[in-house]
């Protein structure tokens, strides 16, 4: 068992403060923020290092931090951004950690241009389908992914449903929507 602060310490020693850009160790599930460019190296390190051996990717998902509801916006404490969340655990050491990569909502501030995050499908095979799902539903482009296509929605679907500003289609192939 290794605590989240030890993991953060080891990562900082290995990759420096710039790559490990933040953390919240007081959260119910402590998380460590990793710079997008370092996520593949950090993942590989966490999987292979004898002290950690995070060989199980429990979950990978995206979430869109934007509060479209003006009533709730006042108490909403996050800047608009998109996150990729990695939940890891180790079969050997029975410990868990959460990694986060924060991305802008749109690349270059151009609406419709998906933000890019390096793919970890080469580290854990489980990431392959999960990244396809995050691309499909949240709209994150995983660079270096072997087969980044939609997985749950039809191939010709427009938009990414789990974006907070997603608008429900009024019509799809003659089927009327809302």
């Amino acid at each position: 068992m290794t605590g989240a602060s030890d993991i953060q310490q080891a990562l900082k020693e290995e990759f420096g403060n710039e790559a490990i850009s933040g953390a919240n160790l007081e959260a119910i599930d402590p998380w460590i923020e990793v710079a997008p460019g370092s996520i593949v190296a950090v993942s590989t390190f966490l999987r292979d290092d004898e002290r950690f051996l995070f060989d199980h990717l429990n979950n990978l998902c995206g979430s869109d931090y934007l509060q479209p509801d003006p009533k709730k916006a006042k108490s909403f404490e996050h800047e608009p951004h998109v996150e990729v969340v990695y939940h890891l655990s180790s079969f050997t050491h029975k410990h868990r950690i959460t990694l986060k990569v924060k991305l802008p909502r749109w690349a270059d501030d151009v609406e419709g241009q998906l933000p890019a995050c390096p793919s970890v499908a080469s580290v854990w095979a489980a990431a392959d389908w999960h990244e396809r799902e995050a691309y499909d539903l949240v709209g994150i482009r995983f660079t270096g992914h072997p087969n980044l296509r939609r997985i749950l929605c039809p191939e010709d679907w427009e938009g990414h449903p789990l974006r907070k500003d997603y608008e429900f289609p009024l019509e799809y192939h003659g089927i009327r929507g809302k």
Binding site: A27, N58, S75, E77
Partner: peptide
């Protein structure tokens, strides 16, 4: 306004739920 992830052992494997709260009664994510 916190987040948690929990997996349980369902018959077909580990089903996980990830919830992000934002102080309201509905989860933000």
């Amino acid at each position: 306004a916190d987040e948690c992830y929990l997996e349980t052992e369902c018959p077909r494997g580990q089903m996980g739920f990830y919830l992000v709260g934002d102080g309201s009664s509905e989860p933000f994510r």
